[in-house]
């Protein structure tokens, strides 16, 4: 009995982190209809920035989050305005390839700048753990989970209550109508991209704390985001959370009861099955009704 509870607990912790890593990808997909294959790079960029900041300033890596998010916000805004905007209204394949090209360039640049070595962020509590009854928790994973949940709530509130959030949602639902009502769609696209990049950066910090990372890992995080978004549905933090948690639980349950090397099989099997049964994701599509 303990084993299954422990497995579920591990899965939930992992899932919360997957959710944060995917939410930016989901937002871009929902609003711009662009599959951002450079998402994993943005995640890693956050991790590297946090590593540099926390070691030079000697502060807790989670405290670097505002600075990292600010940098990535600017990077994301510029990236969208200068590159993505030029391909956004053409075929979805074109914009997807564009982001892939950028991902390759940035991965190579990261190898030059940060070396291909694996790095890891190690705060003081990195290796602590605590017990709740018979279930033991990894302190760092739990604090990362909390950080992820807080960030997801912030994003949900931003989208729901702020003026920016209203405009983003309006653009996603009816781009043309939003434009007619005086929304500067290009600006909104860029802001959406900026917000997404900022959240990718935030998740990068969290990931950097719990897992070793290197420039070659970007593909993994893009792919994970893909799966989470398909599971949970496009464009909403709640969808990403559901998708992430589901993915986390399925991974740990498979690893425990089927075999440690099978989580990826079930992950992609689940992806294909869910696409067939409910292409709009478990929570449905938060923005556009049919896409």
């Amino acid at each position: 009995m303990n084993l299954i509870i422990q497995t579920l607990a591990d899965g939930l912790v992992l899932g919360g982190i997957y959710a944060l890593a995917a939410v930016g990808f989901s937002l871009i997909f929902g609003v711009l209809h662009v599959i951002n294959l450079s998402h994993g790079i943005l995640v890693l960029l956050g991790a590297y920035l946090a590593l540099i900041l926390s070691t030079t300033l000697r502060i807790d890596p989670l405290l670097t989050m505002p600075a990292v998010m600010a940098v990535l916000f600017v990077v994301g805004y510029a990236y969208q305005r200068l590159l993505i905007q030029r391909a956004v209204d053409r075929s979805p394949l074109g914009s997807m390839l564009l982001t892939f090209g950028v991902a390759l360039m940035l991965q190579n640049t990261m190898i030059w700048v940060f070396s291909p070595d694996m790095k890891s962020i190690t705060p003081g509590y990195a290796l602590a753990s605590f017990k709740l009854g018979a279930i033991s928790f990894d302190a760092v994973r739990v604090s990362c989970l909390l950080a992820s949940l807080v960030m997801l709530c912030c994003l949900a509130a931003l989208l729901k209550f702020s003026a920016l959030g209203r405009v983003i949602r309006a653009t996603a639902q009816q781009t043309l109508a939003a434009r007619l009502c005086g929304v500067n769609v290009r600006h909104v696209y860029a802001l959406t991209f900026a917000v997404s990049a900022a959240f990718a950066g935030a998740s990068g910090i969290v990931i950097g704390i719990i897992l070793p990372f290197s420039p070659a890992d970007e593909g993994t995080w893009t792919l994970n985001a893909f799966v989470v978004v398909v599971l949970g549905g496009v464009g909403s933090p709640a969808g990403a959370l559901i998708g992430g948690l589901l993915l986390g639980i399925v991974s740990t349950l498979t690893a425990q009861y089927i075999g440690p090397s099978f989580p990826n099989v079930t992950m992609f099997l689940l992806l294909v099955l869910l696409l067939l049964v409910r292409p709009q994701g478990l929570l449905g599509n938060a923005f556009a009704p049919s896409r």
């Binding site: 591990d10 992992l14 897992l211 993994t220 740990t252 690893a255 440690p260 090397s261 989580p263």
Partner: peptide
């Protein structure tokens, strides 16, 4: 798996 992300189990 070739690239594990969690070995708690």
């Amino acid at each position: 798996p070739a690239k594990p992300t969690d070995v708690s189990s």
